[in-house]
Simulated scan of single mutants.
Amino acid sequence: MSNVLAATYNSGMTDFTPPDSFAGLTPELVLDAVESSGLRSDGRMLALNSYENRVYQIGIEDASPIIAKFYRPLRWSDEAIQEEHDFVRELQAHEIPVLAALQTEDGKSLRHYQGFRFSLFNRQSGRAPETGDPATLEWLGRFIGRIHAVGATASYAVRPALNPQSFGVLPRVWLLENDFIPPDLLAAYTSVSQQALDGIQACYDRAGDVPQLRLHGDCHLGNVLWLESGAEAGPHFVDFDDSRMGPGIQDLWMLLSGERSEMQSQLTDILVGYEDFFEFEPRQLYLIEALRTLRLIHYSAWLAQRWSDPAFPAAFPWFNSQRYWQDRILELREQVALMDEAPLWQI
């Protein structure tokens, strides 16, 4: 095992080689891992919808079920996972409705069992927010503003940043150097992806020196659970697994949808709440389509890099077909044009 991988698994795990896949994560191991934390499982286990990691709802004797999250081997270091946990707990200390990993008596939240890293969470119910309601968008904006106000007080030391290099240049290089893009489409993808990167850089140049802060990083509606009533009514933010340093607009643009006029209206409603707690720098508007384009490039590389995981061909059977890459080429061409358009508001 390399020094880098050895450093990744540095918490007393010297008697075995860490796994490089989920192949050994059997139901028995999952239940044993949970019980190693001092809980008594009743044997019920429900796999939840997650591909990057493995997430299960586990029944607990004489108590509510808990959520067990097993981290993809070799993706993050222990230190990077702990940074995410510490940030979420910091948010929780500011009474922001987030789902923090449960701690042991000695204050640890990242756990180890048979080479796998995992964490435990209380189960959180809720539904997706109704983004057609201006009051809901304003409410979402208030809490994202509060998250960013805390996120701006410090920087990550270990977790990487979201930028054109990490989400665009490097994923593109990986795709071009591996045999995923069909040969007859390789030249077209190479050309349009380079045009896309040039457009992204132009957007960043127009935006200028936008402040970077600790983000949720993947703040789409699937990671926001809405409670209808009671003291905890409103949005609850879950799954900070992709939390990184980046521009604040990253946590806002994924809440926007529809035609340009609809997105303008939605962003206005969000920022009414957001700016109650954190100042919005309008220059970030230049980055919306650039960040969307980065996400598209990164997503293709993410699927390709995970393709040896049996869960991915089963869940994404349309990936890596001739049609898939033809659609990606057209999609990037559309993004190149969109990045040349004026931002949602006049700056």
Rank of each mutant, 00 (worst) to 15 (best):
R75Q: 11
P97I: 00
C203S: 15
D276K: 11
T136F: 01
I96T: 07
L29A: 04
P160Q: 07
G126K: 02
L344I: 08
G132R: 09
L287A: 07
V88A: 09
S2R: 06
H112Y: 10
Q57L: 13
R142I: 10
S257G: 10
I270C: 03
D340K: 14
N10Y: 03
I249G: 08
H220A: 09
L256A: 08
S155C: 11
P18H: 09
Q82E: 15
W318R: 13
L39N: 08
D241V: 02
W139N: 15
P129Y: 04
T26S: 15
Y9W: 12
T293L: 05
R292K: 14
E259V: 09
G168D: 08
R75W: 12
Q114M: 08
T190Q: 14
R333Q: 15
L176A: 07
T104H: 01
L162H: 07
A63M: 03
H216P: 05
W226E: 10
Y156F: 14
A161Y: 04
R40W: 00
D106L: 07
R333S: 14
L91T: 07
D309W: 05
E28T: 14
Y204H: 13
R206V: 00
T26V: 06
L256M: 06
I181V: 15
W318V: 08
L120G: 02
R111M: 12
S155A: 14
R244L: 08
L74C: 03
Q346I: 11
S265Y: 04
Y286D: 12
D309V: 09
A342Q: 13
R123V: 09
H94K: 09
Y113V: 05
L296H: 12
F167M: 13
F118M: 06
A202R: 14
V224H: 04
M339P: 00
V98R: 07
L294R: 10
L140H: 00
Y286R: 09
S50F: 03
Q201W: 04
S300N: 09
D32Y: 00
A33E: 10
A128M: 13
F22L: 09
F121M: 07
D327M: 08
S257T: 14
I329N: 05
L303S: 03
Q212M: 13
S261Y: 06
L287K: 05
N3D: 12
F277S: 14
S261R: 10
